[in-house]
């Protein structure tokens, strides 16, 4: 706009690279957000994302913590049970296996060999009780090849 050329004379003392007050405001917001994010990560909002073998290796470290484990459903391991009963299955990453109990709605894409992510609290030598069961397509818009 032509008006910019007519910019008002600004008092020179006011014109600095950064304004201290703004810096304080920005730092305050950054601090608050940083704090919220830090506490968010410390709490149960964060979980360890591991493969089945990693989980076995680090069993002591993650005992009692929330974990998120990815693996393929072992073919033939799914015991769905009747309506209202929990689903039992095992997942594997090729070397180790992990038993999972899931009480929730049967997800859409859940079958032998599918890649799934389960989330729950880890207790050594117990099947993991998952409160979340995510099934994955290779990509959201990618169809799996039909047989």
């Amino acid at each position: 706009m032509s008006g910019t050329a007519l910019a008002q004379p600004v008092e020179k003392s006011r014109r600095r690279w950064f304004d201290l007050r703004l810096l304080v405001a920005a730092l305050a917001i950054a601090g608050a957000v940083g704090y919220l994010m830090y506490t968010g990560l410390q709490s149960t909002a964060a979980s360890y994302f591991v493969t089945v073998s990693e989980l076995k290796q680090r069993a002591a470290e993650v005992e009692g913590k929330r974990v998120r484990v990815g693996g393929d459903v072992v073919p033939g391991s799914i015991r769905i049970g009747g309506p209202g009963e929990p689903i039992h299955f095992e997942i594997t990453d090729g070397t180790s296996r992990l038993s999972v109990v899931y009480e929730g709605v049967l997800p859409d894409i859940f079958a032998d060999g599918r890649h799934v992510i389960v989330e729950g609290t880890f207790r050594a030598s117990q099947p993991i009780t998952a409160d979340t069961l995510l099934t994955q397509c290779p990509s959201r818009f990618e169809s799996t090849p039909g047989q």
Binding site: A32, V33, L36, M37, T39, G40, L41, S43, T44, A45, A46, S47, Y48, F49, V50, R68, E119, T132
Partner: peptide, 17 residues
């Protein structure tokens, strides 16, 4: 260590904002 965050994280951080 692969750490993931779920909805509680976003609710806690983004909610107040």
């Amino acid at each position: 260590t692969k750490l993931t965050v779920g909805p509680p994280f976003y609710n806690q951080v983004n909610g107040p904002l």
